[in-house]
């Protein structure tokens, strides 16, 4: 079974996003960019399935600017076999919406015919939490979102997934092919070793454009402004528990 993993290039999770003063968006020039943390977990899970003999090949796909090559190389260095870069923008500030990403992934999937797609649950830049569900809908496949465990039954073409839901955990069986989106607790991604980083440079990376695939990426949501959230006023340090209790009762009046 072939596994396809979509990986997004996003601001590194350790970097605080800065809003541009003209309200046109978040400044991404000269900012450290990385593979979306959830997608790193998705790549790791795919590699583990291959190591267990449950998958034959792992194809990673990124959609966006040319620079997304770097996150694809990261995924190849971790152990993915092959990469596809779909260029859909030339400015790093132009985000491709989940609906357009899903349409592009659908085209790629029609060519590649994977038995399973493992995506992240959410991109930490737009925080949309939508692409996997949209892709599953467009393909007419089953979906299992927010997964914390994934067990494949190759003989019966079923995956058993534990999902993190509001009240706790849910277990479902989905028919393959399926789209699984992963939550943070699924695994701990490995670090790529130096030899594997070198090897990754020779692994195949194919480039296409959104136009080649016939997908219109014009945004449906036009961004009017991007603003800083309201700042919280600085508070005070209290010196004792009794002072804290007194402040909460008489000053903040919350207890």
């Amino acid at each position: 079974m072939k596994i396809l993993v979509p990986v997004k290039r996003v601001i590194d999770y350790n970097v605080k996003a800065r809003v541009k003063s003209d309200g046109s968006g978040v400044d991404l020039a000269n900012v450290k960019m990385s593979i979306n943390p959830f997608d790193e977990i998705a790549v790791e899970e795919a590699i583990r399935l291959k190591e267990k003999g449950q998958a034959s090949e792992i194809v990673v796909v990124s959609i966006g600017v040319k620079q997304a090559q770097d996150v694809l190389r990261t995924a190849l260095a971790m152990g993915a076999d092959r990469a596809i870069l779909v260029i859909a923008a030339d400015d790093v500030h132009q985000d491709i919406e989940p609906l357009a990403v899903a349409k592009i992934l659908k085209k790629v999937i029609e060519d590649e015919a994977p038995g399973l797609v493992i995506a992240g649950k959410q991109a930490i830049d737009n925080d949309m939490n939508a692409t996997g569900q949209m892709l599953s809908a467009l393909l007419g496949w089953s979906q299992a979102t927010f997964a914390s465990t994934l067990d494949i039954d190759n003989d019966n073409d079923i995956a058993r997934v534990t999902r993190e839901i509001d009240g706790g955990l849910q277990t479902i069986d989905v028919k393959l092919p399926s789209i699984v989106t992963v939550d943070l607790r699924m695994n701990e991604p490995r670090f790529a070793s130096l030899p594997n980083i070198m090897k990754a440079k020779r692994k195949p990376m194919e480039e296409k454009t959104a136009a080649d695939l016939g997908v219109d990426v014009t945004p449906r949501l036009s961004i009017i402004t991007t603003a800083e959230p309201p700042a919280r006023e600085a508070g005070i340090i209290v010196n004792s528990v009794s002072e804290l209790v007194e402040k909460l009762k008489n000053e903040a009046e919350v207890i």
Partner: peptide
């Protein structure tokens, strides 16, 4: 925006060929 609705509404949006606006 519960885990249930986040699971379902993007799927609805895609089949209507519209974007979902989350949160």
């Amino acid at each position: 925006a519960t885990s249930d609705a986040k699971n379902i509404l993007p799927r609805v949006a895609a089949l209507l060929d519209v974007m979902v606006i989350s949160d």
